[in-house]
């Protein structure tokens, strides 16, 4: 029996050795992509909105893992910083504050039909066909897509190659996308900004520049008369 056990362990060892790099790569790829797909489905399927956001975060993280696996480490890290570190936090913030969970449950349980469903269906089919056209075209007619792959294969790190492209060839597109974000931000501020009257505000300059003369007043108090100090 003891020899059998040893044989078994030897077999296991042989198996582990025969797993080469490609298989390890495949294992990681499928793990991350399965997590990504399942969590994407769970975003829409879970009834609790906060859970949806947590699944969305899991989705972002596994997608950034996939980015890192194909060698786009800069993109993966930026994905983590921007989407997971900032955007999803604000999502969570809003969802927790609004308590949307209940509303969503009512909507699912209710009999009333919603006008949003056909619109959503149309948009999602449009996006689906767009993706099919792009991927299909890229797969079967790669020459119509003007993708310059020369930078990806050179020895510089992909942060450098991204920087070389973004700030030279695509500078205008890059600037315009920045302007669009700025306009969106200004719009959001304009929509929510309101000036309320009668709110006491702290002015640091006023506080610091206050002198003794304007703050303190010495009065002679006559007996049985008192003073009126507020004006």
């Amino acid at each position: 029996m003891a020899t059998d056990g040893r044989m078994f362990w030897r077999l296991i060892l042989k198996l582990t050795i025969s797993i080469d790099k490609m298989i390890a790569h495949a294992i990681f790829f499928y793990t991350f992509s399965i997590i990504a797909v399942v969590s994407a489905i769970m975003v829409t399927a879970s009834k609790n909105t906060v859970h949806s956001v947590f699944f969305l975060i899991l989705d972002f993280i596994s997608i950034s893992c996939l980015f890192i696996m194909i060698g786009a480490e800069f993109l993966g890290m930026i994905m983590l910083i921007v989407y997971v570190g900032a955007v999803a936090v604000l999502f969570l913030f809003v969802v927790m504050m609004l308590n949307v969970a209940q509303q969503k449950n009512q909507w699912f349980a209710g009999q009333a039909t919603s006008k949003h469903i056909p619109v959503g269906l149309i948009i999602s089919t449009l996006i689906f066909f767009e993706i099919i056209i792009v991927i299909g075209g890229w797969k079967y007619k790669p020459e119509i897509f003007d993708i310059n792959n020369s930078l990806a294969s050179t020895s510089v790190s992909n942060t450098h190659s991204l920087g070389q492209v973004i700030y030279t060839d695509y500078i205008h597109v890059f600037q315009i996308s920045g302007m669009i974000l700025l306009v969106a931000m200004v719009g959001a501020i304009v929509l929510t900004f309101r000036q309320r009257s009668g709110v006491k505000k702290q002015s640091y300059i006023k506080q610091i520049s206050r002198e003794r003369a304007e703050g303190v007043e010495v009065l002679e108090v006559q007996s049985n008369k008192g003073v009126k100090i507020d004006d």
């Binding site: 480490e73 800069f74 890290m77 930026i78 983590l80 910083i81 997971v84 570190g85 900032a86 936090v89 790190s157 992909n158 942060t159």
Partner: peptide
């Protein structure tokens, strides 16, 4: 290669 970005990302996930 992106060590400082990794540090930044992990510290921003801390929330």
């Amino acid at each position: 290669n992106v060590g400082i970005l990794y540090l930044f990302a992990v510290s921003s996930l801390g929330v």
